[in-house]
Amino acid sequence: MSNRLSPVFTQVGRIILGKEQQIRLTVACMLARGHLLIEDLPGMGKTTLAHALARTLGLDFQRIQFTSDLLPADILGVSVFDRDSSSFKFHPGPVFSQVILADEVNRATPKAQSALLEAMEEHQVTTEGATRPLPEPFFVIATQNPSHQVGTFPLPESQLDRFLMRIHLGYPDAAAERALLESRERRDMISDLTPVIATPDLLDLQSQVREVFTAPALLDYVQALIRYTRQSSDFVNGLSPRAGLAVLNAARAWAFMDDRDEIVPEDVQAVLPSVAGHRLYPVTGYPSLGSGQLAERLIADVPIP
């Protein structure tokens, strides 16, 4: 397996320097058929990551810049009267792509946000009475500025829940940053990228991920984690059943990338901060950039049964 994916890591790793863990999580998220939310300051390489990944995987890529005046039709597409055929013709919006970068998703109004999020959930778009399936694979990478920035509509908890993972990119370390500054324009590098994996193969990998075995002992562990969040006084709410499923899906992808047929607790621990971080709220305040640390504490506190 990993020999099919390792060129992906190498190639994307050449563009996004020093962020191996984030790249792996991104790929895991895609393999698990989830969607990814990247939360970071502007200019940290969110767009570059999405673009590089799409090119490397040979998927068609659309970027939607979310703004406060964005309308759902701008995302989903619109029917226009065609004079030649005397009928309305549907012009698909940017959402009909395999990889979508929803940039600064929290700048748009909730109405526009929910249009995208529903498409993410359903893998299909219903407009004007017709239902149109979205292409496969369908992978949304949404980026979000830290919510305290001016002019944002923070995603409600229920919407956050639709993202399998939320990651932060963070500043590169000095060496990576130096290499970045020395090398050429990222945009040119990305346009030079060639696909290293065929789409049918990618779909095949996705279906293989679902076959990764989950032992009763592991379910015990996941349940112990969930129970802890529900009983502990550190969190406003416990993890939902959907969050539990999300943890397992992500852990399956992680184990699969590690060439294993079974999930081990380490897989859960590896994905938990990203999967549970945006679903957990400390009682003391609103989720901040460091809310992944909450998940780290959760891991440390729950013994593996």
Partner: peptide, 9 residues
Amino acid sequence: RKPSEGPRD
């Protein structure tokens, strides 16, 4: 072994 430490770790 820490209680929360996985076998591989």
